[in-house]
Nucleic acid binder design. Structure first.
Lengths: 168, 168
DNA sequence: TGACATTAAATGTATGTACATAAATTTGCA
DNA sequence: TGCAAATTTATGTACATACATTTAATGTCA
């Protein structure tokens, strides 16, 4: 039930082998934990890969959204709309990118409530360097072949299909 | 590439249908995002389910570890060892459980560096109530059948197999 | 014994998430 | 026109993660 993440990160093995509580109730429970655990594993690998560049994952993602817009600006509302998690706080992530001179913030002249956010030359250069170093490829699912990846996508889509959030 | 979590939470659909950037580079990239995304989806469902009980997920997990030890105490070191993420801060999560009178902290008489942490009667009662209300089952992978769940476990195990963390 | 290393927990700092609220601007309509 | 509602961003609080450092107690060994 409870797993030591860093141990597995360094010495990958089947999830049973790291479980302290003896067994899972059933394969469903195992899959549930396995899913959360594998996602953490991927995220930690990514975070470690980005660390040498002084970026966190959310900061990297926002930079990429901004590059997608470049040379047009993005507003905070656009960033929120495109981020993985809608409720996270784009304003403060942009604060940190601004401190590092990777983005600029200017009041939108057409609508003074809004803020135009633009990636800087330094921001573009940093993204390019990260991509040229192959940081993204390092965290790919290289252990799976094409058929397996398609299977996985089907299963994950199915998990989220056909039901509503209970009690809301 | 970037997905609106809360929309999907309320209206599950295939992951392509929520993507703002037009397409994935390939099925591998899609599976990567799909995995992170589905795990967030499960976690958010769980967090929402625990909210009425005034617990966060890490707090709930630590309570369960403590019940597993009960009536013996656990040390902070034992909690860290059994938690999903070894580097998270068990001390401060125990702080919050202690404020809610769900656990007690006493200096270990045999080793005054260590702290004995025990679940209280109120803590045990809360766990029982949560489980009787079926909160755990609500977040199961009910959309999959037995064969699919086994397939999923195999694929997830395979993702983490056979390589080391690059550059560490 | 006493100096030094080791261990266990707590604390500090930076970041991010989740959620509520505030502040400024714009919109819309009586 | 003028005032309420809506929009856009920023801020505040609580909690958690990640990582470094501190504090206290114990262990080791010359």
């Amino acid at each position: 039930m409870y797993i030591n993440l860093h141990l597995i990160l360094l010495h990958p093995m089947r999830i049973e082998d790291e479980i302290k509580q003896p067994i899972f109730r059933d394969d469903f429970q195992k899959a549930h934990i396995n899913l959360l655990f594998t996602a953490s594993w991927l995220q930690l690998r990514q975070a470690v890969a980005f660390k040498p560049y002084g970026l966190t994952l959310p900061q990297f993602n926002i930079l990429r959204i901004l590059r997608g817009q470049h040379p047009l600006p993005a507003t905070v509302a656009l960033l929120i709309d495109r981020m993985l998690d809608k409720t996270s706080n784009a304003s403060r992530i942009v604060d940190r990118l601004e401190e590092k001179k990777l983005v600029t913030r200017t009041v939108c002249p057409a609508n003074r409530r809004a803020v135009d956010i633009r990636i800087t030359v330094a921001g573009l250069a940093l993204l390019e360097r990260i991509e040229q170093d192959g940081v993204l490829n390092a965290s790919d699912l290289t252990q799976l072949n094409d058929a397996e990846v398609q299977q996985l996508n089907g299963l994950l889509d199915k998990i989220r299909s056909g039901d509503e959030l209970p009690g809301r």
